[in-house]
Design a binder for these strands. Structure first.
Length: 466
DNA sequence: TCTGGGGTCCTAGGACCC
DNA sequence: TCTGGGGTCCTAGGACCC
């Protein structure tokens, strides 16, 4: 069996751990530049604010419901994620970290009852980190994902009842029935009690026996299946496949034709056959991208150069961290497509004579590319650097006639990385990055870096003490 | 005023090889 | 008059994930 552990509203939960006053308040966390809402507490979801909504569109709702707003604080979230993952590793030798807030925990060889074990994991993560998690357990990754959806619904029912209109808890069939019958929500909720009382409770769901599988998939909308995106969901719905159960039982030939092999794998996984293997030791990335929107429009080449130099430097750091060298350096700029006015976007890709991980080489290539694509008279919104054709440093292939004496790694970069690891990113940087960045990202609501900055440590006041 | 960032995999079609 | 068959590699674009 495989358990999918998913942190609930992860970024919001991180904020709450260090500011308990947020506990019973609706909370949102914003994307870079404070642009969109990328994380919502249960209360906010219940208000119907969608993932990815631009902040300026819901200003009034935020006022009205006293929603707490935070800029994203990736230093904090990254550290909290690490703590959660370390805790999980105590429960199984095989933990696959899938994203910042999710991990597959393999329970093969673990004797305990899966439900009890999952409940213990949940309680321990909560005690060690303060982060609430949901666990879905099933024989394949896709079924574990499905079980997790069920576990989350249950959890949400328990925590957000004061905000209700729990429309999002039910699948569309039930949503429909609900408006038709006009039944009070509580009555509706009783109808959807778990298949077997013990298998779904308190943020944990186990989907194992054939009947558990069928009952779970029957109440899951087809778009909620892992691997089915909005495009394919529309195709499936047009063909009458509206639930995960109908997808599971669909004709494989037809699926192959309509959704390619990716779809076939998903269907087989729903049938209990493992197609997505465990991946405990992730391969290095095949491509590295660093880009940011600007806090305000940028028109001058010099400012773009500083931004591109910064992205090139950070991309190179990431490259060195995974011990790769890049063969191709690409740079891109674009204007704001949401705005009136002349639009322009372009990219340039340069091939390095020898694959390199050196900041100076990559930075020089990126700036060269930028000067090639820059056009005056445009208000740029975003710039970025992309590294491709990556290979392990040890195996870097020089071109036949290139000079061979190029060093594999520069002592300068090694020092730069060491200093920045210790004193923080960008402590030491190339002069091309510059100093004042009026175009820098906006983060007006950022919380302190509680766990990674001495100066930001939370202070505990004991009552009665000064 | 204000609209994120970073990835992967698959396929079709073109270019090319013998 | 007649114009094969089989293969690889690369890339752009689409779809998905968080």
């Amino acid at each position: 069996m495989i358990a999918l552990v998913d942190c609930n509203n992860f970024y919001c939960s991180c904020e709450r751990v260090f500011q308990p006053a947020l506990e019973n308040r609706p909370v949102v966390v914003l994307s870079n530049n404070d642009g969109c809402i990328v994380a919502r507490s249960a209360e906010v979801k219940a208000l119907g604010i969608a993932m990815g909504t631009p902040l300026f569109k819901v200003r009034e709702l935020i006022q009205k419901h006293n929603i707490a707003v935070r800029s994203s604080n990736y230093t904090l979230y990254g550290d909290m994620s690490h703590r959660v993952m370390r805790t999980l590793e105590a429960f199984s030798p095989d933990v696959e970290i899938y994203s910042i807030d999710e991990a597959f925990v393999y329970l093969d060889g673990i004797r305990a009852d899966p439900y009890d074990y999952a409940a213990r994991i949940r309680a321990t993560v909560s005690r060690h980190t303060g982060i609430p998690v949901s666990l879905g357990v099933g024989p394949t990754k896709t079924l574990a994902k499905a079980a997790n959806k069920l576990a989350k619904r249950r959890h949400a029912t328990e925590t957000s009842n004061s905000f209700v209109n729990n429309a999002f808890l039910k699948n569309s069939a039930e949503r429909q029935a609900d408006t038709e019958t006009g039944l009070p929500l509580d009555a509706v909720r009783k109808k959807e009690e778990s298949p077997t009382p013990k298998t779904i409770h308190e943020g944990v769901a186990v989907v194992n026996t054939p009947s558990e599988q069928a009952q779970t998939l029957a109440v899951l909308d087809v778009e909620d299946v892992w691997g089915v995106g909005p495009r394919n969901a529309r195709k499936l719905r047009r063909a009458g496949i509206t639930t995960a159960l109908l997808l599971r039982d669909a004709d494989l030939q037809w699926i192959r034709k309509t959704l390619t092999v990716t779809g076939v794998r998903t269907v087989l996984e729903l049938r209990g056959q493992r197609c997505f293997q465990a991946d405990m030791t992730p391969e290095p990335n095949r491509q590295i991208v660093r880009s940011r929107s600007f806090g305000r429009p940028v028109t001058r080449l010099e400012e773009l150069e500083q931004a591109v130099a910064m992205h090139a430097g950070r991309a190179a750091e990431k490259l060195r961290a995974q011990k790769s060298a890049a063969g191709l350096v690409s740079v891109f700029v674009m204007t704001n497509r949401h705005k009136q006015g002349p639009q322009y976007g372009n990219s340039a890709t340069l091939k390095l004579a020898i694959p390199s991980d050196a900041t100076d080489t990559i930075l020089a290539a990126a700036l060269k590319g930028l000067r090639r694509i820059y056009r005056p008279g445009y208000a740029f919104k975003k710039a970025g650097v992309m590294l491709m054709d990556l290979s392990p440093v040890a195996a870097a292939q020089p071109m036949l006639f290139a000079e061979l004496q190029a060093p594999q790694s520069s002592p300068l970069d090694e020092t730069l990385d060491a200093v920045n690891r210790r004193f923080g990113s960008q402590t030491l940087r190339y002069a091309a990055v510059g100093f004042d960045h009026p175009w820098a990202m906006r983060r007006e609501h950022r919380s302190p870096q509680y766990t990674t900055q001495w100066s930001d440590l939370p202070i505990v006041k004991v009552s009665g003490s000064p």
